[in-house]
Amino acid sequence: MKKTSLSKTLALLLAVLALLSLAACGGSGEKVIQREAPAESAGPDAALTSENAREETAGAGFVFIHQGVRVDMDAEASAIVAALGEPSSYFEAASCVFEGLDKMYTYGGFELDTYPTDGKDYVSAVIFRDDSVATPEGVMIGDSAEKLQQVYGDPSSTAENLVSYQAGNMELRFILADGVIASIEYLSLAAEGD
């Protein structure tokens, strides 16, 4: 009886280990520890002129457009950065450990941030710095919460001073202070996990 129990226990242990390995091998996701690659890279064609951003970007996420240069979240950054011209300031931050640099380009009224994946940089965020720039839909820092509601409609989520519109793999965030927009941010959700 004792021997049978031992054999059964061992068989069970081995079966569990085998099953666990199989379960792991059969997993759907490739479990490599690295930054998640963007779902779609816009590539060099990302820097395009657009007359009607709202229609063009419907369903694909909100897009920031500055002087004809279109900035999609998770688009490859090199062409966009080249099209935007010389930044007024540039800063790069290495992560504590991983290779590659998060880069921050500051232009007139906004900051463009990028994150590295597989040797290339992709757009992770556009942060408005002042009221010299506006979203393609015509909203800028200093506008009222009422205008925000009129232009963008019901948000995906709200919390405290934050109004958020999620579309595709990006988020357009408005931070309010005393009923007025204090900050506008286009954020890649793919980059946020980093």
């Binding site: 800063f91 921050m104 900051e111 942060i127 919390a159 405290e160 001073n161 934050l162 965030r173 931070i175």
Partner: peptide, 12 residues
């Protein structure tokens, strides 16, 4: 250290 950016505005 050069051009170190100031913090973004936070909602909270």
């Amino acid at each position: 250290a050069e051009n170190v950016p100031e913090g973004r505005i936070l909602p909270d």
